[in-house]
Simulated scan of single mutants.
Amino acid sequence: MCGRFTITHPNEALASMFDAVMGNDLPPSPRFNICPTTPVAVVTSDSGSRRLRAMRWGFLPAWYKTPTDGPLIINARSDTVAQKPAFREAVRSRRCIVPASGFYEWQTAEDGTKLPWYFTRTDGQPMALAGLWQRWGDIDTVAIVSTDAGPNMRGLHHREALMLEAADWPLWLGEAGHGAALLMKPSAEGLTQCHRVDRKVNSNRAEGPDLIEPLAA
């Protein structure tokens, strides 16, 4: 799953990486503790023209009367998106990419304590997380797609965010025909690395570069 992530790369660098036109409503960078319901940068494509623009993290199905009319939907399971009423149309026609410099996952200790780990790509590049988006009123909202845990995540959690490689972006964004379902698979061995971080990130009010520093032994 993905419940918190970071953006430490500048918006300009993300726009260049994805060959996207940068919107003027993007949230500032860096951000070290991005939480649900806040704005995030999202890559969309319309007839092959990509945009990097802001969306609310927290997918609002069309039938919600208010943003709190139902459960907060921040993730969409890859194995059920084609069947779930909330996502059926979005997975066909409103796929997007959520850039992330890294994300947090929590391990439950024997005493029930939640121990945070921070994951990044081993090559230092931003992650391209698969997303689905929905317009609700005048708000564009997004959920991050999750899949079975890859080898680097197993032992901490049974799910992880679906990470896309650059060669897969055109297919996921709908620029290269059909077959996006084939991309919904766990990450490869060695794609990510992780380290323990301080439990202060457990608070959604915490912020700052010290949140991603390795925990001292």
Results as ranks from 00 to 15, higher is better:
C2R: 09
C2W: 05
R4I: 10
T6D: 07
N11D: 12
E12D: 14
A13P: 13
L14E: 13
A15C: 11
M17Q: 13
F18M: 10
D19M: 15
D19F: 10
M22G: 14
G23T: 03
N24R: 15
N24S: 15
N24A: 14
L26S: 12
P27E: 13
P28S: 14
S29I: 08
N33W: 03
I34L: 02
C35I: 09
P36E: 12
P36C: 03
P39C: 08
P39T: 06
V40T: 13
A41K: 04
A41E: 10
T44V: 01
S45Q: 05
S47D: 14
R51T: 13
L52S: 06
R56H: 05
W57A: 02
W57G: 01
W57C: 03
W57E: 00
T66R: 08
P67E: 08
P67T: 10
D69C: 11
P71A: 15
I74V: 15
S78G: 15
V81F: 02
Q83C: 14
K84L: 11
A86Y: 01
A86R: 00
A86I: 01
F87T: 01
F87K: 00
F87G: 01
R92H: 01
R95A: 00
I97V: 13
P99V: 13
A100I: 10
A100C: 09
G102H: 09
E105I: 04
T108S: 13
T108V: 06
T108I: 13
E110F: 03
L115K: 13
P116Q: 09
P116S: 09
P116V: 12
W117S: 11
F119Y: 11
F119D: 06
F119P: 08
T122M: 08
T122N: 13
P126Q: 05
M127I: 09
A130G: 11
A130C: 08
Q134K: 00
R135M: 03
W136E: 03
W136G: 02
W136F: 06
W136C: 00
G137A: 04
I139M: 02
T141I: 02
V142R: 01
A143P: 03
T147Q: 07
G150Y: 04
P151A: 03
P151W: 04
P151S: 02
H157M: 11
E160N: 07
E160L: 05
L162T: 15
A166F: 04
D168M: 09
P170A: 03
W172A: 00
G174Y: 00
G174F: 00
E175S: 04
G177C: 06
H178I: 05
H178K: 06
H178G: 04
A181E: 13
M184P: 06
P186E: 11
E189H: 10
G190T: 01
G190H: 06
C194N: 08
H195Q: 07
H195C: 05
R196D: 12
V197A: 12
D198I: 12
R199F: 13
K200T: 15
K200M: 14
V201C: 13
V201G: 14
V201H: 09
G208T: 07
P209M: 00
P209W: 03
D210M: 05
D210Y: 02
L211N: 08
E213P: 00
A216N: 06
